[in-house]
Every structure is written in C-alpha cells, then in structure tokens.
C-alpha cells in the first residue's frame, strides 16, 4: 500500500484545475468580461427611457361620431406617443414608463361599474349600457400634473353630470366617491403597498356636475389605451392630474367627504380639492411654473389651470390656501 505523506508545498489534487476548463480558459475570461461589460451597459441603459415597441393609434379601436366641444382648447395637443408613454399610474409601477410597459395585462372587456349610495336607481351596470344613451364628445384639455409638468390631450368622453343624473341623485348626495379596480394579478403595482389600494378619489357634487368634468373613454379618437386608465376614467381639467382617477369600477354618491388616496398618503402635501393654484406651493416644490411636455422653457401655471372662468365661482369665499 502506498501511503503518500503530504509536504507543506504539495498541491492538493482538488486544487488542480480540470484540464477541460484549463483549455477553455481564454473562452472563460472572454465570456466573463463580456458578461461584466453587458451588465454594466444594461444597468446604464435601464434608467433612460425604454426603447420598447410603442403603442400606435392603429392598435386601438376607433371611436366614431365624435361631437366637437366649445370647451376644447385650441392649443396644439401633445403627440400620441407622449400621451401614451409618459404616465403616472402607480397601479402599474411608479416610473413614468412603467404603465406603457406593464398595463397590457389589464383586462378591460367585460367591464362594469357599480353606482351606489345616495341615488334613486343604484346598480351594477355594464360599460356599454352606461355609455349607450350618450353622444361622445371630443374635449381637448390641458392636463396639469402636481409634479409641475403638463400636456394637452384630446380626450373623448361624456359629461359626468349627464351620466349621474340618469341614476337620480337624492338631495343627500353631497359628494361623489370613485374607486379604481383592485386586481394585483393584472395590476402589478398593487402587489406592493405604495398607496393604500384600491386608489380612491372624490369630488364635491357641484364639481362633479360642472360641465367641464367628464368621464373619458378615449383619446385621439380611439378607445383609451390601458396606460391612460382604460376603459373609463375621470377628467377634471382644473385640478391636478391625480384627481382624475383611472380604470373606475365604482361610483358612490355620499353625504360625507370621502377619503382620497393621495390625501390619505400625505395629507400635508395633497389636499382634497387639489385645484391647480400657482399661489400655493407643494411643500416640496413650487407650483408657479410648469414644463409643458415637448417644450424647453417652463411656462407660468394658470389659476385653475386656465379654467378659472368656468369654475372659480365654485370656490367663492373659500380660503384656497387652507383648502388646497
């Protein structure tokens, strides 16, 4: 029997590199270097705008028989690409590009909306039946985000007041509460508690009945893309964008002021009213000016986002600094 006595300088057989590996060492080095380089480039490329395939208007069903509206602005709208690639819709992620990337998982057909609370005729109604009696209008509106950027968007929709009246609000209906779909399997952003899901918003009844307030079902003459709040969303053009709740499944008329998501999340920063107001800064940034997407210099922000003529008297006598 051979007994090998190991001396300190001896190489343990386990340390000897396998011959195959040894022969492929250059290949290994090359692939390791490539992998490292690729990872660095991927990491570097990731934060910049996604270069994924963009949604084109032709991918969406066309809406016909649209009626133009005197409430439309004649400012030139942002491009379809801007409108559908730069979105705040935390249900699909908190980056601006996330909704365009992830909202395709949302199933919008069939869709129904529950209308309850202080109405004579409550019920669950299919989206087609909700829209059927109404003419679709095109409304080109300014949209001002609380983050100090803005766009001009050609929405397609129906005045909210016209819809609510069909359900006959009672005299106790003082507010309207809206709720977004809660479905983490389709809305991946809801798997983390960034906000207190489901997203909730609300309006005072007179704000809801104002002719500027619409429920939108489309933009650029097509049905709403998922990232923009398909199939049904609110548009309140004189308020910061977060008031215009997306993918609505519930409308409840209430006696009391409903809780609203951003107000619950940060009450010092986001009020119930959230009227666009250059005089009242967000605690962390100025609201005096905004960047219109596509423009280089910031432009001044207008009181009530330029809709003061139509809505300022809703707030007559109110302290708008306190009721921000």
């Amino acid at each position: 029997m051979l007994i090998r006595v190991r001396r300190p300088g001896d190489i343990d057989p386990r340390e000897i590199t396998d011959e195959g590996l040894y022969l492929r060492r250059r290949e290994f080095l090359r692939s390791a270097a490539l992998a490292g380089g690729a990872a660095a480039f991927a990491a570097a490329g990731a934060p910049t705008a996604s270069r994924a395939a963009r949604l084109a208007p032709g991918d969406l069903a066309a809406l016909t028989g649209l009626v133009p509206s005197p409430f439309s602005t004649d400012e030139s709208p942002n491009s379809f690409e801007d409108v559908t690639s730069y979105n705040n819709f935390y249900e699909f992620g908190t980056d601006k590009e996330d909704p365009a990337r992830h909202a395709h998982t949302l199933v919008t057909d069939p869709w129904s909306v529950s209308i309850r609370g202080e109405v004579e005729r409550p019920g669950e109604i299919a989206l087609e039946d909700l829209l059927k009696p109404h003419a679709l209008e095109e409304r080109v509106y300014r949209l001002r985000c609380v983050e100090a950027w803005s766009m001009v968007i050609p929405w397609v929709g129906i005045p909210l007041g016209d819809i609510l009246r069909r359900f006959e609000p009672t005299s106790h209906a003082k507010y309207v509460a809206f709720r977004t779909l809660y479905k983490p399997s389709q809305m991946r952003g809801q798997r983390r508690r960034v906000l207190d899901w489901p997203y909730r918003e609300g309006l005072r009844i007179d704000e809801a009945m104002n002719p500027l307030t619409i429920l939108a079902v489309g933009l650029y003459g097509r049905v709403l893309p998922s990232q923009n709040g398909a199939p049904l969303r609110l548009i309140v053009p004189w308020k910061y964008g977060f008031k215009s709740i997306k993918s609505i499944v519930s409308i409840e008329l209430t006696r009391r002021r409903p809780a609203t998501s951003w107000n619950v999340s940060a009450p010092r920063e986001y009020g119930f009213y959230a009227n666009v107001n250059p005089e009242v800064d967000h605690p962390r940034w100025s609201q005096k000016r905004e960047r219109r997407i596509g423009e280089f210099r910031r432009r001044p922000t207008l009181p009530f986002n330029g809709y003061a003529e139509s809505v300022a008297d809703l707030y007559a006598g109110m302290n708008l600094r306190k009721n921000f």
């Binding site: 934060p47 910049t48 705008a49 996604s50 270069r51 942002n78 690409e81 801007d82 690639s85 730069y86 601006k96 590009e97 950027w149 960047r291 997407i293 596509g294 280089f296």
Partner: peptide, 13 residues
Amino acid sequence: SLGANPIETLQHT
C-alpha cells in the same frame, strides 16, 4: 430617445 421629458430623464439618470 430620452423619452417624453428629456430634461427629467437627464436629471434622474
């Protein structure tokens, strides 16, 4: 291809 808000993309990146 810096996205809809190129200045913001530059700032964040």
